[in-house]
């Protein structure tokens, strides 16, 4: 053990962490600290002990093969950005770039960004849309059984984290797929003004003038994330460019769908969501190269 007292535990290996968790399952994991240091209630909780997991090697590893990259939960956003510059798609790089500033990104960890209890930042939305899976492990059990689950299954309909106490996110498996059109857009600041912020990740394939394999996620930091099935149904097979009236109709339909399914969306978020969807749809252009090749 690197360090241990009644309140703070800094394990050096995964086994040390596991044996501690078997004895005291009610503790708080600490990695980057951007969320915990923001919360006065956490800081004043005298009962809860803090486990700093940044010294554990398994959680800071990055491994890659042809199809996906496995990223440990304590890898910082800046490190991921540097390493993934040539491997990841533009959508994920844009998302990481727009996750706060360089100074704060040095502290933000991938696991922390995914596992904030009540607030959702930009990264989970993009990762959920990319069909990312996470490996979680229940450290309160004697026999460790790591499970791979889709990232969107970590949250309930209100966007709250559903991981139980003692369950730890070990790594994230990011697929290396590339799409023809990828766009990350946001309005507002998820840390300072979460109640008015809207974040949208969108990707689709374009075959000549036809749109297919459409995926979109909309994140409202205080209400959770929404993976739009309506959008996929409406837009798969659509001819490009999409007419103004169709864009307006689709954006209205999606926004209505979102407000019906999620609680607590403010009028400004609703309007911003509609406008962002419209701006993304207006940006999609037919694949000029393949049209020219056919001609």
């Amino acid at each position: 053990m690197f360090y241990s007292n009644s309140k703070l535990i800094i394990p050096e290996t995964f086994n040390e962490l596991h044996s501690y968790m078997l004895k005291k399952p009610n503790c708080m994991f600490f990695a980057g600290g951007t969320y915990i240091m923001n919360n006065k209630t956490y800081l004043k909780d005298e009962e809860q002990s803090i486990v700093d997991i940044t010294h554990i090697r398994e959680f800071s590893e990055i491994t890659r093969n042809i199809r996906y990259v496995d990223v440990g939960s304590t890898v910082t956003a800046n490190k991921l950005l540097e390493i993934g510059k040539l491997a990841f798609n533009d959508l994920l790089l844009d998302t990481l770039h727009n996750t706060s500033t360089h100074i704060v990104r040095n502290l933000i960890t991938v696991g922390g960004a995914v596992c904030t209890p009540k607030i959702r930042y930009s990264l989970p939305g993009t990762l959920a849309m990319m069909n990312t899976v996470v490996e979680v492990v229940d450290l309160t059990q004697t026999k460790l059984m790591p499970k791979l689950i889709p990232i969107d299954k970590l949250y309930n309909s209100k966007g709250e984290l559903m991981l139980e106490r003692g369950v730890l996110l070990k790594k994230i498996r990011i697929s290396l797929e590339n799409y023809d059109f990828e766009k990350f857009s946001y309005v507002g600041d998820p840390i300072r003004t979460p109640e008015s912020t809207v974040i949208i990740s969108f990707r689709a394939n374009i075959e000549q003038t036809v749109l297919n394999k459409v995926n979109m996620s909309i994140t409202f930091p205080t209400c959770g994330l929404y993976l739009s099935e309506t959008m996929a149904l409406e837009l798969n097979g659509a001819q490009l460019p999409i007419s103004i009236s169709r864009v307006k109709a689709i954006s209205e339909k999606i926004t209505e769908g979102v407000t019906q399914e999620m609680d607590g969306i403010s009028p400004i978020q609703k309007e911003r969501c509609k406008r962002l969807i419209q701006s993304i749809l207006f940006e999609i252009e037919p694949d000029q190269h393949s049209i020219e090749a056919t001609e």
Partner: peptide, 11 residues
């Protein structure tokens, strides 16, 4: 390395 002092705990 520039850092925000309010986000760094003592340990």
């Amino acid at each position: 390395e520039p850092t925000l002092a309010c986000l760094v705990p003592a340990f």
